[in-house]
Design a protein around this nucleic acid. Structure first.
Lengths: 339, 339
DNA sequence: ACTGGTATTGAGAGCGCTCCCAACACGACT
DNA sequence: AGTCGTGTTGGGAGCGCTCTCAATACCAGT
């Protein structure tokens, strides 16, 4: 059976309270006693019972990562793996635990919300790239559960960390402009997501900054998935673009595939730039010129912001933090800059 | 503040015990009372406090997924995303929660083990593809923590679910043999992993079954990562194979890349088959002929086995379950069967 | 009316921990 | 010698829940 504080106390010849002090690094313990207690703890392999502790401290040392219903289908995108890796690393460093919730259950997201968030399991949550109007956000605000969004949000009460999608997209598009392209199309993400809107904004800014017209026949909405890239190409080709800025690597894979099927050469006939710099970007042929986002940082920063929120004294009123991380363009073969 | 049982009891005009019975579906409650209590619960949005409940039931309704240190570098492999998706779906269906632990921390896996597994946070754990000699397994056995392995294990006390790596690899190799190849090389996974050993065994079985020699110059060890595939090709080419069975899709991407660099055509000069059928298999050109494994099933089955283990009465002695799921060959372009 | 059985309910104890407060020892100061 | 402060320790209460057991109500059968 698992040991309790009481038993450790008996073994060390002190009281329950003293052992508790030792375990929690309370300075009010004589050094000699502290040593003795630690020795017993080490020898017995004692570990405090998490639930008992949580019951009184009202803290679980667990944070949740929520993949909202609206994006569970994107979960296999390596973006989420990398994000999770960053988040878990930061959690480990801070001795926090991570609970993963995909809101992908037939019971409905309301029921999951109740079960996961209202039962005091979690000290706080990180919400991964929700759509702008995800019903989750108002609920979290209403229940005053500490949370951080990965991806920006319009509500001023929301703390978030995002990558600079606008300037990333602008760079990717300007790169094509510099290469002499005039008819530059774009495949966007699902417009319900702010990241998709931002990348489209960056694309438009680049065109406008260089006096090029924004032509709606050169804009096709995708879904951040491969199939969306394929479908978008079919809609775009009649407008005869000479280059395409694709709003994600995964869609770019689809675009590449579709173009190949149509007999178009990349970058010879059509140049491509995209966004994310996932491992797949170098797996395809030609390798993708793409915008790198610091996904690992994104995860680590989200954890840091959340822990700040959790440890903030409840009366402290302060403005929610909003961080935007920089992006960078990685030039490879698909844009035709190197030939 | 969050409500307690006691408050609900007062509101419904019954005792704490009765509310507890209602919440836990105890049949010994008059229907009229049950209705009344449920109504109050619904109206107030009451949710039992998880820690308080855990403290007495000794159950947390949380299961852990552990990615051992030996494979954390593979975590971005979409295999893990798909596995996690299957696991979370099964968890949601069973009203369990999922705690994700990557043993990737500088504090060392011993410390994480203590922190995560000895504090009674978890009802049980799923260990994802450990190496054969991962020190985690004996510790879990010693501490009698219910656990299920994804991937087989030699110890007879271990419950696991695996895919049929041997017969999958045999199919992939035999397919090449049927296409007339005689000099078939293989790029293996890291030989510390049983799945890698099994896939190599399948490869050898296929050769032997068709009277072909097993030539060690045609066998190169990889690491299940892209770089390993690239490096393996350089070691393999001097032996002039006409076909290669690559033990994972991700490595196959590397192999494709390296062959292209060496000016070899796939499948013209060298035919390729691989293993996994991840999304990337259809992203590359030519698309990979590969062995599909039912990853989603793997995750769901692991959860099912674990829950069986958790709910088994402690005195029930029974033989650990070992399940092996079938694989299937998906023929695409890289093997040259379709031209 | 009395007995026994069954269905339903409430009260008390206790899970293992933290936190508050009182108790104590000890030295320093008046 | 008495008082105070400081450092250290132990005991009690209580977090919100479940579980056991006793109490009560009600019915049927005698």
């Amino acid at each position: 059976m698992a040991l309790t504080l009481e038993q450790i106390a008996k073994l060390a010849g002190v009281s329950r309270s003293t052992v508790s002090r030792v375990v929690n690094d309370d300075p009010n313990v004589r050094d000699e006693v502290r040593q003795r207690v630690w020795r017993v703890i080490r020898e017995t392999g004692y570990q405090p019972h998490a639930a008992a502790r949580s019951l009184v401290t009202r803290r679980t040392q667990i944070i949740g990562v929520i993949i909202p219903e609206s994006v569970t289908t994107l979960f296999t995108d390596p973006f989420f793996s990398l994000l999770l890796a960053g988040i878990t690393a930061a959690c480990n460093e801070n001795r926090y635990h991570l609970m993963l919730s995909l809101f992908n259950s037939p019971e409905g997201s309301d029921a999951i919300y109740q079960r996961v968030l209202r039962s005091a399991y979690l000290d706080g949550v990180i919400v991964a790239s929700a759509t702008g109007d995800d019903p989750l956000i108002p609920r979290l605000l209403r229940d005053s559960i500490p949370f951080v969004l990965v991806g920006r949000h319009l509500d001023k009460r929301v703390t978030y960390v995002d990558v600079d999608n606008v300037s990333g997209a602008r760079m990717a598009t300007e790169h094509l402009i510099r290469l002499g392209h005039k008819r530059i199309a774009t495949v966007t993400g699902p417009m319900s997501m702010l990241s998709a809107q931002d990348r489209l904004t960056g694309y438009k800014q680049a065109l406008e900054a260089h006096g090029l017209p924004v032509d709606s026949s050169l804009i096709a909405e995708g879904d951040y998935r491969e199939g969306g890239g394929i479908a978008a190409v079919r809609r775009l080709l009649p407008a005869s673009p000479t280059a395409i800025f694709v709003a994600s690597d995964v869609m770019a894979v689809g675009v590449l595939k579709a173009l190949r099927q149509e007999g178009r050469e990349v970058p010879g006939d059509i140049a491509i730039t995209s966004f994310d710099d996932l491992p797949v970007a170098t797996a395809v042929q030609p390798a993708l010129t793409t915008v790198r986002q610091p996904i690992d940082d994104l995860g680590r920063t989200a954890v840091q912001l959340l822990l700040d929120l959790i440890h903030r004294p409840p009366d402290a009123t302060s403005v929610p933090q909003r961080l935007v991380l920089p992006t960078e363009l990685v030039v490879r073969g698909s844009c035709g800059a190197r030939r």
